[in-house]
Design a binder for these strands. Structure first.
Lengths: 336, 336
DNA sequence: TTCATGTAATGAAACGTGTCAAGCTGTTCA
DNA sequence: TGAACAGCTTGACACGTTTCATTACATGAA
C-alpha cells in the first residue's frame, strides 16, 4: 500500500505550490498549460486521489443527496431510485442509496448518518409517520422531500400519488366488471398510503348499493404474504369468497395470483378478479397480465429531486406538494 | 436554519473543554456522569450533529463500505444488497449502495468517488472486465471483492457462482426432458458470466448426440428484450423453433414466457420448455412457475462482506475466491 | 518611461474533529 | 508525611483541503 499522498506531495513533485494543485483540481482553466501538465504527471505518478473528507470539511457542503427507501427489493422503489439518480446526475449531484428495510431503527440511523455527512438534502420514502423528524432535521439545516406520502405540514415538500383516487379507480373498475363482494388486502392500516387506498375503495363501494368491501389486514406487503392470504381465501366456501381482490401493491397481488391459481387451482379472472397497485414491470409481464394502478416511476424520482433542489435553494419558504394522478392499467386479470 | 454548531459551541455551553465533548461522543465511559449529563443537555439544546467530514479527516478512515451493482432494478442484485447490508451492520459498517446502471462511465465515477471517500472497501458487481481497475485501486490502498464473477488474478478476492456448472445443469435438464433443439438467449457474449453459462450448456449438448444449441445473442437482459426475442421465436415454423429455451437470467426468461404465452399463444411447457437463471422470487411466483438455476442470494452478500473484512485486515495476502455451486430448481416451466 | 490592468502563482489561514501529553485532584501505600 | 497512582480533564496540535489576500510578472496605454 502506498504511503498516503496528499496535495502537498503532488505539489512538491510538480514543483508548484499546493494552492496551485488545488486550483488545477477545481478550476483547471486558471492554471497555465505548462504547470497543468507537470501536475497531471505528478498525480499519475503518485496515484493521488483527493481526500473527500478534507475537501468537504473546507467547503462545508457535499454535492450529494440521499435517497432512503423502505424496501429496495420492491422494484417500485428501485425504479424510483433510477429516476432519482438520473436526474441528480444531470445536476452534478451524487446519490447515496439506503435501504431501511422497513425498520425504523435503520431509518433513524441513516437519517443521522446522512446529517452527519452534511448531505445537501434527503429524499425519504417511508411508511409510517416521519414528518416530525424531518421537520427537526430541516430546522438543523438539512432540507428533505417526502416521497410517496403527501406531507401534512405546509412547509414540508412531498411527492406523492393520489392514493384515495387510486383506490377509487381500482374498486370502481371491479364493480364495473360486476364484482360485488370485494376484498382489500393490505396493511398495516396505520400507513397513510394504505388507509387512503382503502378510503378511496370505500367511496367506490358506497356508490353501489349492493357492493361490499372486506379489509384483510396484513403485516407486510410481499409475495409470500400474498400467497398466504390466497390460501386463506381459497379455503372459503364460494359464496363467502370475494369475487374480486384489490391488493395494496403488486407484490401482494402477484403473490395472491400465484396462490390462487397455482396453489389452489382457482382461475383469474374467471373465479376471482385481481387488481394490484404501483404497476411494476412484473405486473404487465405476468402470464396473466395484472391490472394495476399506475403511479409514475422515473418521473416520480425526477420530480422529487427537482423539489429538493428548490428546497435547497429557497432554504425554507415555498414548499410544494406534488400529487400525481394515478391511472388504471386494465389488463387480463380483471377482464372476465 | 441554526448557525453551524460544532463541538466547540457544545463545550462552551456545557462549560467543559472540547476534548471532553469529543470523549463523550467517542468514549462515553471515560467521562464523569455529571459532565455527561451537562454535555448531553447542551447537545440537545444546540441540535449538535457531529461533522463526519472533520471526524473522518482526523481518523483517516470511514467505517463504511460500498456496494456497486450494475442494475438495482434487477431483484437479484437487490437481494444481494440486503445480505450485504445485514452482514455489514453486524460489524458496525454502513453500506453505500450505488447503481452503475450498466454504464461503465457511472461505474468509474462511483469507484473514484468511493476512493475519495476513503471507504474501507468495495464490493463490485460488474459485467465486463474490471480487474485491472480494481488492482490499481487496491494498490492505492482500497481493497475490494469482485461479486458475481470469479477473479482471474490470485490476489483479487471474489464471490461467484460456478456458471459453467449452472449452464450445464440447465441444458442437461432440458435434454432429460427430451428437448433436442435448444436455444440459449443471452448476451453480450463478452461477459464472462454469460460465456461460462454457454460453455456449460455446450458441454451438456455435446454429451447428447442429436442435441443442438443455438445461441441468440442479445444486448441486454431485461423483460422487454425477452419479449422481443419471444416474438421472433414464435414467428418461426414449428420445425425450426427451439423445443427449449435457456435464458441467461430470470428477467429474460419471464419476458420470454410472457411473449410466448401471452403475445403469441404458445404454451409453456407444452410447446416450449423454459429455464431461467438466478432464481429471483418472481421466478417461483410466476403463474407458470419458472425452472431456474439458483444462485444463493443473501448468503452471497454475506460471504462478500466477510471476504472484504479479511482483505481489509490482511491488507494484501491470502485473497480467497469463493465459488458457490448452483442448484437447479425444477418447476412447471420444464415439466411437460 | 510610468502607470494601470490583468493573469498566474503563492503561502498562510481556517474548516471541526480526534488524540495525546500534561495537568489536576484526591486516594492509597510505605 | 511524602510519594506513587488512578481517574478525569484540559488545550494545543494535526488531519488535507479550499480560499483569499498578496505578490510576481507581463502587456498595453498614456
Amino acid at each position: 500500500m502506498a504511503a498516503r499522498v496528499g496535495i502537498r506531495e503532488v505539489a512538491a513533485l510538480a514543483q508548484v505550490a499546493q494552492g496551485t494543485v488545488s486550483h488545477f483540481i477545481n478550476h483547471p482553466d486558471k492554471v497555465s498549460a505548462e504547470k497543468r501538465e507537470r501536475i497531471q504527471r505528478a498525480i499519475d505518478e503518485l496515484g493521488f486521489v483527493r481526500n473527500d473528507a478534507a475537501s468537504q470539511l473546507r467547503r462545508g457542503s457535499s454535492a450529494t443527496i440521499a435517497y432512503i427507501a423502505p424496501d429496495i427489493s420492491n422494484p417500485f422503489f428501485a425504479t424510483i431510485a433510477e429516476g432519482v439518480e438520473q436526474r441528480a446526475a444531470a445536476d452534478g449531484l451524487s446519490v447515496f442509496l439506503a435501504n431501511s428495510n422497513r425498520s425504523r431503527e435503520r431509518e433513524d440511523a441513516y437519517l443521522e448518518m446522512f446529517q452527519a455527512h452534511r448531505v445537501r438534502g434527503l429524499l425519504v420514502a417511508s411508511h409510517g409517520p416521519i414528518e416530525d423528524r424531518l421537520a427537526h432535521i430541516r430546522r438543523l439545516g438539512t432540507p428533505s422531500v417526502l416521497v410517496g406520502q403527501r406531507a401534512l405540514a405546509s412547509d414540508q415538500p412531498s411527492v406523492s400519488v393520489d392514493d384515495e383516487m387510486g383506490g377509487y379507480l381500482a374498486a370502481k373498475h371491479l364493480i364495473e366488471q360486476s364484482a360485488r363482494r370485494i376484498a382489500f388486502v393490505g396493511g398495516p392500516l396505520g400507513v397513510p398510503q394504505i388507509s387512503d387506498r382503502i378510503e378511496g375503495a370505500s367511496r367506490a363501494v358506497r356508490e353501489c348499493v349492493d357492493a361490499t368491501l372486506e379489509v384483510i389486514n396484513v403485516g407486510s406487503r410481499t409475495l409470500a404474504v400474498g400467497r398466504e392470504v390466497a390460501a386463506e381465501i381459497a379455503k372459503r366456501s364460494p359464496e363467502r369468497r370475494p369475487e374480486a381482490v384489490f391488493a395494496a401493491n403488486d407484490l401482494l397481488a402477484l403473490g395472491l395470483m400465484h396462490g390462487l391459481v397455482v396453489d389452489s387451482g382457482l382461475r383469474v379472472p374467471a373465479d376471482i378478479l385481481l387488481v394490484g397497485y404501483d404497476d411494476i414491470e412484473f405486473a404487465e409481464a405476468s402470464v396473466i397480465p395484472l391490472t394495476s394502478v399506475r403511479a409514475p416511476h422515473e418521473e416520480f424520482g425526477i420530480a422529487a429531486v427537482e423539489l429538493l433542489q428548490r428546497a435547497i435553494a429557497n432554504d425554507t419558504k415555498s414548499a410544494k406538494q406534488i400529487v400525481f394522478q394515478p391511472k388504471l392499467m386494465v389488463r387480463a386479470s380483471t377482464l372476465a
